[in-house]
């Protein structure tokens, strides 16, 4: 019961992150051509279709590009690892977390899986939950 009550007080960092027992990302998939997007859509950038449905994106992936950011805008804690992760054919942007942010510990082709973490709690007691990818 505690976990259910806890979940009621959580909010995802972005609306395409689904929390709960099996956290995962969702995408808006174009019904006509299958192109996937993470943002609010007006139409499809690939085929201009206007019908979308929500699909779950796989939580396992492979790092296809990364950088270790050591100098960022004010307020952005550094260092962190930014990456593009290929999740079963869908490219996802996210940080590599639960790993030392050094070139020795992150590599191209590295297998990773989605993980969530607490960003912070607001005055209402609501926890904001973020996501990243950790070594699998």
């Amino acid at each position: 019961m505690a976990s259910v009550r806890g979940m009621a007080n959580q909010i995802p960092l972005v609306d395409y992150l689904v929390l709960g027992d099996a956290p995962h990302l969702t995408a808006r998939e174009c019904t006509a051509c299958g192109a996937r997007f993470f943002d609010r859509r007006n139409a499809c950038a690939s085929c201009s279709g206007t019908e979308f449905h929500t699909v779950a994106v796989g939580t396992d992936g492979e790092v296809k590009a990364f950088t270790i950011v050591t100098f960022a805008a004010p307020g952005v804690p550094v260092p962190f690892v930014s990456a593009i992760v290929d999740c079963g054919g869908t490219s996802v942007r996210g940080n590599i977390i639960n790993v030392e942010p050094t070139p020795e510990h992150v590599s191209l082709g590295m297998k990773v899986r989605l993980a969530t973490y607490l960003i912070g709690t607001d005055d209402n007691g609501t926890e904001a939950i973020g996501f990243g990818f950790e070594p699998n």
Binding site: V69, R93, G120, G130
Partner: peptide, 10 residues
Amino acid sequence: VTSTDGRIGT
């Protein structure tokens, strides 16, 4: 719910 720069990539 907050800035994503540095949290969801760069």
